[in-house]
Amino acid sequence: MRIECKNLSYIYGQRTPFEKTALDNINISIESGIVTGLIGHTGSGKSTLALLICGLLRPTSGSIFIDGEELYKAEKDGNKKRRGIKKSNRKSSEKMKFKAGIIFQYPEYQLFEETVYKDIAYGPSNMGLSREEIDRRVRDAAEFAGIDSNLFEASPFELSGGQRRRAAIAGIIAMDPPVLILDEPAAGLDPRGRSEILGGLREYQKITKKTMIMISHSMEDMAKYADKVHVLKNGAAYLYGTIEEVFSRAGDLKKASLDVPQITNLFLELGERGLEAGCGVYDIKKARDGIIKLLGGGEY
């Protein structure tokens, strides 16, 4: 699914002393079938943008198009006709229901059912699927997320922290949404846990060819998992491009209070001292190639 945001703004606490512009007239598009990273310093509006795309927040102004269809248009017109006060009060859109799945930070805090199985099945059963289909999806999602079937009858609150997070992620994957948004689902995990969760989700995206949006403030994660990156700065779109393109502009990233991976920094500094080895160096493999090139080429 292709997602486009046109002149999108969101203001929290409008008309109160706490008014804060989270997104300021943003124009970006998210391409279908790839992993798009949203990166920015704390308070740059990443999470707000995710909520808007999911239809969980209603934009203050501007519009969102999903595959060319405007998210709130039909509802707006409907309200004019019916003057439905109740409907216009809704902050969310029904249109994105089941189309965008979002995995929040600390997703384990959304678990509530008596058993792990029931919790994973909560989303699919809200979709009104048949019992067989729900069962199939729960089992697939659990297997993917690494939840053993002998845990199905356990209470989610008995699980360990890591298992709980996996169960919660399985609950989203079981809904099989065309768009999957990751709002830092690996927050608070050690590096190994991070790469297990994020790497697993990236694998899942490769197999299913879903449109995936990944929010993070870690450049290393972006380099590892994202195809294209949007950089946000103070609620505005700042940079967009492939990883190489964005990382080659380290100076601009620093202005947005972001850092490029250390390895990229090293190669940028080498470049400044006259050892030009390309600026899109962001992982070990590329670094090795770069060093070989600097040393005079050849195969090793």
């Binding site: 965008a100 989303g123 609950g171």
Partner: peptide
């Protein structure tokens, strides 16, 4: 939590 559960339908 409301957002998370809304996203789950």
């Amino acid at each position: 939590i409301i957002n998370a559960q809304k996203a789950r339908g």
